[in-house]
């Protein structure tokens, strides 16, 4: 994804990695998250993305630079982040298996759904408010472009 020039190839690579993540979730035993990963990410988000890439068809000028001027600091920060994450993982409680409840097994879909709708109902309701806000914001963005077209 970092080195491909065409956005469509990046999108296909991302779709592949998302489907593989769905397979990983399935192997871990959380089948409903695997299903939602494939349905929402691959089925909705990435299809939308691919659609936009086909719609835009903006050709970059040949010889234009692929990377921004932040390549070197960006790579340094990436390597540092990876090293920090690795060090934290190897030295932290993960290394000795001291995390509480380790090996307590998977939870079922029933358990998840009842926890979702009883203990976390407020979060669920807040999500609906958030989605309404997102719809209003998307409409506002579309309105801006329409007003600009009328002004032009």
């Amino acid at each position: 994804m970092l080195f491909m020039r065409e956005p469509m190839r990046v999108a296909l690579a991302l779709i592949t990695s998302m489907s593989s993540l769905g397979a990983v979730y399935g192997l871990m035993g959380v089948h409903f998250i695997a299903a939602f990963q494939v349905l929402i990410y691959v089925g909705a988000v990435m299809v939308f993305m691919v659609y936009v890439i086909m719609l835009l068809e903006v050709k970059e000028a040949p010889g234009s630079k692929r990377f921004s001027s932040y390549v070197v600091p960006g790579v340094v920060v990436g390597v540092l982040l990876m090293a920090a994450l690795g060090a934290g993982m190897l030295r932290g409680p993960m290394s000795s298996g001291m995390l509480p409840g380790e090996g307590s097994g998977t939870f079922s879909l029933v358990e998840f759904s009842s926890a979702f709708l009883t203990r976390y109902w407020l979060v669920f309701e807040l999500t609906t408010v958030f989605l309404v806000g997102a719809i209003v914001a998307a409409l506002a963005v579309v309105n801006v472009s329409r007003r600009k077209q009328e002004g032009a």
Binding site: L2, P7, V75, G78, L81, M82
Partner: peptide, 13 residues
Amino acid sequence: FTIGLLGVVIRRN
């Protein structure tokens, strides 16, 4: 996560 962060920082598209 690191690949994604690198992509956001270094790509221009």
